[in-house]
Nucleic acid binder design. Sequence first.
DNA 1: ATGTGAAGTGAGTAATCACTCACTTTTATC
DNA 2: GATAAAAGTGAGTGATTACTCACTTCACAT
Lengths: 224, 224
Amino acid sequence: MEEPIEEWLKEVLMLDHAESKMTVKQMKIVQAAAEIFARKGFAAASTSEIAQQAGVAEGTIFRHYKTKKDLLLSIVAPVMSRLVAPFVIRDFGKVLENQYESFDQFLRAVIENRIEFLQRHMSIIKIMIQEVPFHPDLQEQFQKIVLAQVLSKMKVVVDRFRAEGKLLDLPSATIIRLTVSSILGYVAVRSLYGHQEDANWDDEAERQATIDFIMRGLAVPSPK
Amino acid sequence: MEEPIEEWLKEVLMLDHAESKMTVKQMKIVQAAAEIFARKGFAAASTSEIAQQAGVAEGTIFRHYKTKKDLLLSIVAPVMSRLVAPFVIRDFGKVLENQYESFDQFLRAVIENRIEFLQRHMSIIKIMIQEVPFHPDLQEQFQKIVLAQVLSKMKVVVDRFRAEGKLLDLPSATIIRLTVSSILGYVAVRSLYGHQEDANWDDEAERQATIDFIMRGLAVPSPK
DNA sequence: ATGTGAAGTGAGTAATCACTCACTTTTATC
DNA sequence: GATAAAAGTGAGTGATTACTCACTTCACAT
């Protein structure tokens, strides 16, 4: 029963394993690079500034990464895998079918879970969204790792709930698009205006409103 | 009755007026810059490449624009104004109240109108979204021109319809966030996968599904 | 026709870029 | 503790960058 969760954790830990083999200085480099890439963008970030902020010589960067772009990939690629990690477990839908009886409950759980992931890795997610459009190889990775996985795995779940009449008769790709864009909108606005102190931003209310909005938009209208 | 539309057109034409005073070569520069900024990003675009693609000497660029960033601003700023142009007409809400009796009709019209605008200026919109996060002065412009205008003008309309019980009891900022994020999701996915020939992308169906999704998510649920 | 300011040019400049390499220091194995 | 491999260094490299400037060409009012 708990097996799939273990498998998912294995996926996550395997990636952290790569980090555990890192030197202290290499970790500093990755952290500095992630911070500067997020703040200035990949093209505007210079290796000399990264080295300076990491407290290492510029040559040290190229001891671990062949090119600046290699450094970018080593930062972005892992979060792509971890972003879809919950979806790649075996029989994704069937497993959760037992835990969550209603589509509402199920979708809420998935959404809450991924919202928290997005917020925890906000700066790297920002780098990903910013740079994917400009790097064909990153686009390909995104297509194969994220899109293909999420679409195929979610399709099964969506199809089942739709067959049960709990979901509107829309293509699953459409349903996923509407869901994801609403979530990204919430996360983006939150990261912009949610951290200001003056903010009239009730985070819990906004999150609930967003999830409710998605549910109302996707559910079959109750008959009058 | 038609006056506000004239006023809105005036806003748009005033900006085109600036273009009409341009030299042929200056137009070429702006077009080349817009294309290259969209394709490679602002930081990765070089003035020499822009000059080459525009068929002018590199010095000519700096005859018209003091810096590379000035060139960026001259491209992005006008579409910000035009993006909110329909909202800045006098008594935005009251005027349309007469034309569209239901909130549904009204919101559909506004959404359809702005979707078409976004698609017509897709490449510049892309530049805007890409570069606003990295340039504090662009952020400020976006805040003052786009956000403030849309929020304040839409608030009036939203408040009225909500008072009539046709809209859920949510902050108008939330309603606008949910609406805009759904639209941007539609436009983004369409621009990525909608132009492929193989595409299983039924544009009209996707657009209708998106608008319906927004409506269902915002409307007060009909009593059983 | 002529004078004048704007438009256009392209070689030139200092700064910065990503990356290399000969060298030193650290770490791990026996 | 000797040895070798890996990690770390920083001055140096050629290429590219945004931008300048002395100069030429053009458009147009008189």
